[in-house]
Design a binder for these strands. Structure first.
Lengths: 344, 344
DNA sequence: CTGAAAGCGCTTACAG
DNA sequence: CTGAAAGCGCTTACAG
């Protein structure tokens, strides 16, 4: 392995000058810089990140925490963040909680973030009060994406889950539905993010705004994924007196609902209308109506808010007030899964 | 930030002893270890990874390279790898090529892997001869998953793409189909992985084994994703004389095909049968017949083959001969998208 | 614009 | 089983 002093020797300068030239600091003459770059090139020199980080006090790395990388939203967010982060010359440490409480605890143990990253991005990651203290003690900058827990001092990027749910529910109401069910995540799950809590409230608000009363038997909780959508819908049908429409808290749950409805011999939308939230890559294929949310933009913006301050970008801190979340717009996309209820 | 000498002072031992005790080395008396652990706990001490890595010469980090984290197979593989890697106490550096040749080049530039990781996992990542030299020069251990390019000395985990394609095609043949189309990835794409090349060959072999001749007009190339499946199918239909069955090189392409077929007014499987490869999480929802491949197992096994040697696990090197790939089994899953052609 | 020297916080022979 | 000391490969004031 060639080291910095090999380069220094070849270029006929000190290691300090090599360090400055390679990092593009302005205090190096053009001629010297040329010689250093040539020497480094000739020796195929690569700086040792660990030495550099130890001496410089920066890690050049950011941590990204997601509940499950295999779910549509989180995959898209990570892809956007990865791109931005690597463009900026940082490394990306991935943490996938995978629904295991133990993973979240391991992550938050001092040793796993501390001294290891310059900043943290928490995507839809819920935190207990104790976790917040741990994070605060680390003193790291960070950003949160999607709901989860707000961290004081960190900016937050998300959509308006309440409004999204109201829009979805109102779309069903406008079509003439009155028996509208809701399937959503489990509020008791420690690791559950909180988006679905707001979506449930939005659903209930829209129902009430239409002069109806939310019917608890039409509100089923399960896991926030495909299988959960299937189970919730099966439970819904088991309760008898099927709804004429279902608002699923996310597209993946809606997809799971499709299976359950099909197995029950119910057609979408003729027998039951169905709408989700996300605009998953496959929602178009399935003809699923949904509330589209901009996943790539949320990831990209979050990465920018995270890195700009580290880079000391001009106006970085004025881009957003850490106190108030940045809300990105959603959009109703009507496809083939929603229609007026059958005249009976 | 508390440092190792703070702990040493509190415990009344040297920093060397603290280092040994904390890492669980056997050469520390039980009493001393207890005192050190207590002191570390009391001070909330976390080792500095950079200092440790610089002094110790290990990075405690592995790099994982995938074409696109948002695609089903890669997301599942990364999830499995992440779990294994973190359990083993390593960090995971994620690289998502995102279809950009520039990203691949950036990754392979000496500075981006060199001195930064202890080992590399390449998932379906193709390499040019020059890239192979670069990797060889780094002298890093590694493993490849799914096709891509074989790296001398690295184990390789994958399925038998040829056999999978033959099975899929034969399933259609067995149902009575004779005009069987194939939609697959673009062989000219620099960044394309190579799985689809084998799948095409398997398709052609099965066609020939049935005494038929592969028809080039039934073999359409596009991108290896949902949109590519749609475009390829549209092209197929544009050529006239539609096939009675389509074998898509992956489930995501098959899903894209569904859209195109529906838009053309063709029903699956009544008008056209359709089968893919993967057993994507949504294939069940869509009733898509497919050749299931074990993505989680491939990721887990690859992680194990990567880490065991680093840990000096007993028999690590005998687990597999780096020369011959480890082939995991696939399985035909028949759902509702394949049926006999219409009697005409 | 450049260099000598100290220091970043650990781990590792080496000696006992 | 334990410690003193050197060393890992950089960066950063400081001085010029």
């Amino acid at each position: 392995m060639t080291r910095i002093d090999d380069v220094a020797r070849l270029a006929g300068v000190s290691t300090a000058t090599v360090s400055r030239a390679l990092r593009g600091l302005p205090t190096v003459s053009a001629a010297t810089r040329r010689r250093v770059l040539a020497a480094a090139e000739q020796l195929q020199y690569a700086v040792s990140p660990n030495a550099s980080r130890l001496a410089g006090g920066r890690t050049g790395t950011i941590a990204v925490v997601v509940p499950r990388i295999t779910r549509w939203f989180f995959g898209v967010v990570v892809e956007a963040v990865e791109d931005f982060v690597h463009q900026a010359g940082y490394d990306l440490l991935l943490h996938n909680l995978g629904g295991r409480e133990q993973n979240r605890q391991r992550l938050l143990r001092a040793a796993n973030l501390n001294k290891r990253v310059d900043a943290v991005m928490l995507v839809a990651t819920p935190l207990r009060p104790a976790d917040l203290s741990t994070l605060a003690a680390l003193g790291l900058p960070g950003v949160t994406v999607s709901s989860g827990t707000n961290v004081p001092g960190w900016p937050c990027i998300r959509i308006d889950d309440l409004a999204a749910a109201r829009t979805a529910t109102r779309h069903l109401l406008d079509l003439g539905h009155r028996r509208i069910a809701h399937i959503s995540g489990d509020p008791d799950d420690e690791l559950a993010f909180t988006a679905h809590l707001h979506r449930r409230r939005g659903y209930q608000e829209a129902i009430r705004a239409a002069g109806l009363r939310p019917d608890p038997s039409l509100d089923v909780e399960s896991t926030f994924d495909i299988a959960g959508g299937t189970r919730a819908t099966e439970e819904l049908l088991r309760r008898g007196d099927a709804p004429t429409a279902i608002f699923a808290a996310c597209d993946e749950m809606a997809m799971g609902a499709l299976t359950a409805l099909r197995d029950a011999g119910l057609r979408v939308p003729q027998d039951v209308s169905l709408i989700g939230v996300d605009d998953h890559a496959l929602s178009g294929v399935l003809g699923l109506s949904t509330i589209a949310q901009p996943a790539t933009e949320q990831g990209r913006l979050a990465a920018k808010l995270l890195l700009d301050p580290l880079e000391g970008a001009a106006g970085a801190s004025t881009l957003t007030d850490p106190g108030s979340p940045v809300i990105l717009p959603t959009r109703l996309v009507v496809r083939d899964s929603t229609a007026p209820p059958r005249a009976n």
